Amino acid sequence: MDDTTRGKSLLGEFLSTRRAQLTPADVGLPDYGDRRRVPGLRREELAQLAGVSVAYYIRLEQGLSLNASPQVLDALATALRLDEAERRHLHTLSGDARQRRRRLPAERVTAAVRQLVDALGDSPVVVLGRRSDILAWNRAGHALFAGHLAPDSPDRAATRPNTARLVFLDAHTRDLYVDWPRKARDVVGKLRQAVGEYPDDPHLASLIGELTMRSPQFATLWAQHRVRAWDMAEYRMRHPMVGELDVLQHSLPVPRGQGIRLVVTTAASGSAAQAALRLLNQTLQPAAGMSATARPTADMSATAHRAADTPARVVPPVQHS
């Protein structure tokens, strides 16, 4: 499949899938109680809502019309009830807004990026590539998200961790999120955005295929064509060493980083979560006379909650085979 055909199929899939997720009642159209052969809005109904001809919309959904105007795309986005991230995604898929690349630049962590990570101090930081591969992390980021993995695993390009694989295929990461289904939806939505921006990345296509085959949950979410923006998200994490903590994960694009982002985790000032993050950092700096591999475990959560003077439930360490 050539670049143009691939782009057109992505746009058509997005339009038809999102159309199927709406009912006449959702958009204020009469239903008349008729039985529908397919779920969701008919093409004619969506065309009516967007103010375009039925023939034109059909050609657009089938990939037979190129370079839809921004005004038409905005009208379709409004008719489909898309949010801002999904609206941008629609424009990206349209062909005129996409910047195709025959060869994507190699992902690397520059000295400037490492300097930025160092400047963030003890905050957990993970550096992600355009496919959500973990390109680097600081000690706190490693301890918070993937302490069960080798600290130097991001340095090996062929086998470096990928956050989507971890969320869907790794038991430790699944247990980290109290509301795992929401985290899973966010991860899939960000991958959808990446596919729109980098449709010619064979490694990204391979990742999607692998996750679709290995995870039924991923396959179900992927088929919904939902999009999530990289911005800020609040999660309740359940860490095996410091218990439950409410955190914010901030996604910061790296200037001239070709899709590279820093994900920085913070907690509210004075909260139990902030105390837990501090305690987690303390375990990375062994006291005198303690070996580098020795780590306090039994009373870490209780200590963190006492330090913040905030009641919180302590979760025992998660056991993995």
Rank of each mutant, 00 (worst) to 15 (best):
L116Y: 08
V117L: 09
H172W: 09
M232K: 15
M213Y: 05
H89W: 01
Q99T: 14
V254I: 09
I134Q: 10
R192T: 13
L221Y: 02
K190Y: 02
H89T: 01
L262I: 10
W222S: 07
L221I: 07
D299K: 07
L207W: 02
A292W: 09
P202Q: 13
P216W: 07
D31W: 10
A267H: 04
L10F: 11
V52L: 07
D31K: 05
L93I: 11
S53P: 04
G28A: 03
A97C: 11
Q285V: 13
E197I: 01
H239K: 03
A68N: 00
S206C: 13
A68W: 00
T266Y: 08
R102C: 06
R238N: 14
D179E: 11
K8N: 14
L144F: 06
P161N: 12
Y57A: 04
T23Q: 13
V315A: 11
V318L: 15
I260G: 00
V314W: 12
T310D: 11
V38I: 11
K190W: 00
R100D: 14
D118Q: 12
H148D: 09
T5W: 07
P24A: 06
Y57I: 05
I208F: 04
L207V: 07
T4Y: 03
H305K: 13
D122L: 05
L49T: 00
R98V: 15
G7D: 05
G209D: 13
S65C: 03
R6V: 08
R19P: 04
G257W: 00
V318N: 04
Y235T: 05
L116P: 00
D309N: 14
G189W: 01
A150W: 04
I134T: 14
R131A: 12
A302Y: 09
A171Q: 14
D83G: 15
V117G: 05
P181G: 10
F168D: 00
V167C: 09
A267I: 08
R18I: 05
E107C: 05
D186I: 08
P202C: 14
G259R: 00
G40Y: 11
D170H: 06
T23V: 06
L221C: 05
R226E: 14
V52C: 12
Q99M: 07
A112K: 11
P296S: 11
H320L: 15
A302G: 06
R87Q: 14
V247Y: 02
R59Q: 15
P216N: 09
P24V: 05
N138V: 08
F14A: 06
T92E: 15
L248N: 14
T266E: 14
Q193M: 11
D26E: 06
L277R: 11
H172T: 00
V125F: 08
A75H: 07
A229Q: 13
P30M: 10
Q115N: 10
P151R: 13
G121H: 03
W137V: 03
T5R: 13
R98D: 02
S271E: 13
Y177T: 10
L207R: 01
L207N: 01
R130P: 08
S132I: 04
R87A: 10
A298Y: 06
G95R: 08
H225E: 15
R18A: 02
G141F: 02
E244C: 11
S291C: 10
